[in-house]
């Protein structure tokens, strides 16, 4: 009779658990069966009517039933929890194609991007990056660079003067003299900076622009080294497939001098509208440091030689990013800057 009671409680509890739909319902069952006033406790009160010799057996039976019910409760709980989580996840589905959220970030200036590229390449080749003054003495901008007093390049129409001796540098080449005067050899440097020329503002001219000067002075530096270095530079800047071409040119402070063209990066050298059918694009001027310039700086040209080059930063930026009007670089319209 006691046994039947127990079985009944167990069955009823299992049935109710199976059909329960929430954790509250499960808890209600747990309290109703296993709680202090639960049906199992109630039934234990009838133990006193059980003969003493049967009590251990009955006790064991009760425990077994309790254990089974507890297991059933745990199982029911787990299954409900899973179901709840499944429902929650299902309800949380989002439209992954909605717009992203981003912190508004600032943008680089195209000149600076080009400059950082150049710096990266030359620092990688062991070049120091140095600076020189923009407001400069005539000596450094002209005289020491083999441009004597009567040279047409000194004509007032090209140069902004502060007074007879002080001017706004027209070329970063003045930094070559500062570097060589320092007396520290070997020299491997680039010097980026702002330069000034008396040109009216239009799509291709600006009275202010930027150059990056390069200088190497050491024992046994050759024109072949100049070519090799700048070819390496061009490949790193424009891509490994880039070809270079050195054309004879003239600068007062280098001899021999050259202009370097690179194969057009649009057509690969076949000729297109971008390179005006030439297949080549002019990039920079360069040459062997004129022995007279070395002498002026107190370096013995019989012992040392060097090469120098000058790159127009705006030229690189305009070419590389296909900017068709130089004025955009100094207007600072954020719709322009945001593209970089």
């Amino acid at each position: 009779m006691f046994k039947e009671e127990l079985e009944k409680i167990k069955k009823e509890a299992q049935q109710r658990l199976e059909s329960s739909e929430s954790l509250d319902m499960v808890n209600e069952i747990r309290v109703g069966v296993l709680g202090k006033k639960g049906s199992l406790k109630e039934i234990l009160k009838g133990m006193k009517n059980v003969p003493a010799e049967e009590r251990p057996q009955v006790g064991q039976m009760v425990n077994e039933v309790r254990q089974q019910i507890e297991e059933a409760i745990a199982k029911a709980q787990k299954s409900i929890e899973r179901k709840v989580q499944e429902q929650r996840l299902a309800s949380e589905t989002i439209d992954v194609t909605l717009p992203s959220k981003r912190l508004p970030k600032g943008h680089s200036h195209p000149n600076v991007i080009a400059l950082k590229e150049l710096e990266r390449i030359f620092v990688g080749m062991g070049y120091e990056v140095i600076e020189g003054p923009e407001v400069e003495r005539d000596y450094y901008n002209f005289e020491a660079l083999n441009i004597p007093a009567d040279h047409p390049a000194k004509d007032e129409q090209d140069t902004f003067y502060i007074n007879g001796d002080i001017l706004l540098r027209t070329q970063t080449s003045s930094t070559q003299i500062h570097a060589m005067e320092s007396g520290k050899i070997p020299i491997r440097m680039i010097a980026p900076g702002r330069v000034y020329r008396s040109d009216a503002v239009d799509a291709t001219h600006s009275p202010t622009f930027h150059q990056v000067e390069g200088l190497v002075v050491d024992k046994g530096v050759t024109f072949a080294d100049l070519k090799g270095t700048l070819d390496e530079f061009a490949k790193k800047l424009f891509g490994e497939e880039t070809k270079t071409r050195f054309r004879p040119h003239h600068f007062p402070f280098t001899e021999p001098s050259a202009e370097m063209d690179v194969s057009c990066f649009k057509c690969g050298g076949k000729g297109c509208s971008f390179c005006k059918g030439e297949g080549w694009i002019e990039i920079l001027g360069c040459g062997m440091v004129h022995p007279h310039v070395l002498e002026i700086c107190g370096i013995d040209p019989n012992e040392y030689s060097g090469f120098a080059f000058g790159v127009g930063l705006e030229r690189i930026a305009l070419l590389n990013y296909e900017i068709d009007d130089m004025r955009l670089l100094y207007e600072n319209d954020i719709r322009f800057l945001k593209q970089f």
Partner: peptide
């Protein structure tokens, strides 16, 4: 150096080899 330029021009700038400067190395950097 001017004579060297004449030699370079008429043997062809394109025929001058491409090498990298040897000699002592310098630390690069900003």
């Amino acid at each position: 150096c001017d004579l060297a330029e004449e030699v370079a021009r008429f043997t062809g700038y394109e025929n001058i080899p491409m090498t990298l400067p040897g000699g002592s190395s310098v630390m690069g950097g900003l």
